[in-house]
């Protein structure tokens, strides 16, 4: 498959602390990759830096999307190229409804006005997949949402924005069994309808059960220490990360 995302020898610093130290990774179109690793290994940093969070400073290496260097681009430009990050801790924004926000995002990404009627219908369908109460569409973005509702709202945006590559940062953390199942169904629906690539950052395997995993990477101390196929997930589950510890 054609290369979609290519990370070359990436070194990243945040507030004088080196977090990623020469990370390389390639994700092909439509592929599903899993990133596993102990706490503090730099998993979330990887997601944030690819999405161009300005707090993270790239000191070496580069990130390519469809062959183009996006290392110095702003987050909105990267988003318009088809990247999406599902946040581990989605931010609350008072005064902006979830529905309006998604529509504004869509219009910004596509540069086209969207007919409200079509949009509402599509939004309703996506919310149904996620078992979300329709009233959430008119509630302020993430304000007063439970942890589970916030994660569902992230996946709702994934379904509506239809990116080429979605990075899911600990989307399953803090969710109960039912919520994980529902969120997984949402991710599956994205794969089915958009066929986009996934980079799943996770601790657990529940969210992966219904996904066809193409590759697994173990991230320790800011580097990928092992690549493998889907079976590596099982292995890590059984024996943990200890043998990779530096």
């Amino acid at each position: 498959m054609a290369e979609l995302l290519k990370i070359e020898d990436l070194c990243v610093r945040v507030e004088e602390k080196e977090i990623l130290q020469g990370l390389s990774l390639t994700v092909g179109e439509g592929e599903t990759h899993v990133i596993m690793g102990p706490n503090g290994a730099g998993k979330s940093t990887l997601g944030a830096v690819v999405m161009r969070d300005p707090r993270y400073v790239v000191t070496r290496g580069r990130v390519l999307l469809e062959g183009e260097d996006i290392t110095a681009e702003s987050p909105d430009k990267v988003a318009k190229r088809g990247l999406f990050l599902s946040f581990q801790n989605p931010v609350e924004v008072p005064g902006i409804s979830l529905s309006n926000f998604i529509r504004t995002s869509l219009e910004n990404r596509t540069g086209k006005r969207i007919r409200i009627w079509d949009f509402k219908k599509e939004l309703e369908q996506a919310m149904e997949i996620l078992h979300m109460d329709p009233s959430y569409a008119e509630r302020d973005l993430n304000v007063g949402f439970s942890g589970g509702e916030k994660k569902k709202a992230e996946i709702l945006q994934l379904l509506m924005l239809r990116p080429k590559l979605a990075i899911l940062d600990e989307t399953d953390s803090g969710l109960d069994v039912d919520a994980v199942r529902i969120v997984s169904e949402g991710i599956e629906a994205y794969k089915r309808s958009v066929g986009g690539a996934l980079l799943v950052i996770t601790h657990s395997t529940k969210i992966l059960e219904s996904l066809q995993v193409d590759a697994t990477h173990v991230l320790v101390d800011g580097r990928i220490v092992r690549d493998g196929d889907a079976s590596l997930v099982e292995e890590i589950n059984a024996s943990g990360f200890e043998k990779y510890a530096g």
Binding site: M51, D53, P54, R55, S74, P75, D76, V78, A79, K80, F84, L85, F87, P90, V91, V93, P94, G95, I96, F101, T104, S105, L106, N108, R109, D140, Q157, L161
Partner: peptide, 25 residues
Amino acid sequence: TVFYLMSRGLSEEDARALIVSGFAD
């Protein structure tokens, strides 16, 4: 908040304007 909104495709200016509009809601 600005980063969150920008990650969905809003320019920094639009993100800030949206936050202020929301504040004035």
